[in-house]
Structures are given as structure tokens and as C-alpha cells.
Amino acid sequence: MLELRSVSARYGSFQALFDVSLDVRAGEAVAVLGPNGAGKTTLLRVISGLLPVAAGELTMEGRSLLDLPPHRIIETGIAHVLENRRLFPRMSVEENLKMGAFIRGARARFRERLDVVYELFPRMAERRDQFAGTLSGGEQQMCAIGRALMSGPKILLMDEPSAGLAPVIVEQVFGLVDRLRGEGYTVLIVEQNVQQVLQLVDRAYLLEVGSIKTSGSAAELAADETLRRAYIGI
């Protein structure tokens, strides 16, 4: 479904990604793991067009995304849940969700999708008139995921959904991701929380200083000695 071939990206003169190749098949959940500064966020920003590709090929269902601006990429079915939620704090929950359905193709189905999101996250229905900035961290993550779902995506890019949340809330958030998988969404998730995320996904890539170090099924990586030592500490 989503395919990256030798993708490089840079911030000015600083190269952040080196020849990254990665693919996500329909219905899969794939994780990109790695430490701070490895380029995980950059990778997602490149896919959703917030950062241009410096070299390489990037396709969604066989269609190149290289020349597409972000507002066209989302129309191909890629929704990005940004790092740190990034809600519109002074808009209500429902207005945030409404913004999620901003693209032309999604506006007509706004009501229908709103019901889907409220069914998925009843808490959001309870808080629909509340300013998004006043939600708790876990609720904000729900709202951010809900907002991404409003565009009717085929694949959901999630950037560290567990960041800055209490352990019990992290548990809940991963529960949400699991439910999304159950709903048939394809998920590409970026995480530092290696142990928990490996229980959730089918496959994973390990990204270090901008290049893919290793990849494999979740079970393989969970058993990998070097990975265990470096990231799980057992």
C-alpha cells in the first residue's frame, strides 16, 4: 500500500534520513522504532508531505507522492496524527473533528464519520462542546486520532501516541490502536515504547541516525538480542 524506496530527507544542510526503504501492506500494523533523534518523526513528516523528499521514491497504492503537497497527499488516504497531539486548543472537540473532515472528499460524509468516531470514542461525544485544550492527555490523543479518522483514511500515521502520557493512559492509548486495527485500519506507528508496541504490530523497523538498521516481524525483533539489550533493558 505505502512504499518508500531509498528515501532521503534533509533540513537545510542537515541530512535526517539516509536511503530509507520501507513498505506497509494493506491491513498491516507496522512500527518504526528507534531512539530520540533517529528520524522517526521526520520519516512520517516526509510521508505526509510536511517535509519534501530530497531523493528516492515514495508511493501510495502505486501512485507517486513526490510532487504532491500535504493537502493532496491526505486525499490519497494518508492521515497523520502528529507528535504531541497538536489539536486546535481553542476549538471545541467537535470543531476539531470537523477540521479533520476538511478535505473536499470528506465534507459530505462528515455526519456519518462523526457518528463512527463518537461510537469508537464515547468520551469524545461527552466532551464535544469542550475546548480541546482542556482535555486530559489521553483524551487529547483520542481526539487527535478521531480527527485523523474524519478524513476517511486508508492508512493512519501515528507519531508517538504514548509520548508524555502516564503509564496507565499509555496502556489505554495502545488499546485504542489495537481497536483501530480491529476496525481494519492500516497503521504505521512510530514509537520509543518498544516493548509495548511490539505486542501490537505485525512488523517493525529499527531506525538509527536516519537509516534502517534492521527489520522483521514483531516476534523476531522482540527476540533480537541487541534490540533487547539496547531498548528494552532486559
Binding site: S48, L50, P70, R86, F88, M91, G100, F102
Partner: peptide
């Protein structure tokens, strides 16, 4: 107006939901 409100709060987030 919604799009402008959104991007005045957070340009990246607005871009991520498809606002040009």
C-alpha cells in the same frame, strides 16, 4: 473561516488535516 482559525492556532496541524 474554520481553516483560518485552525491554521492561526497551529499551522502544521492545519496542514496535516488537508488545509492548503
Amino acid at each position: 473561516r474554520f481553516a483560518m482559525d485552525a491554521l492561526s492556532e497551529d499551522e502544521d496541524a492545519a496542514a496535516s488535516v488537508g488545509v492548503h
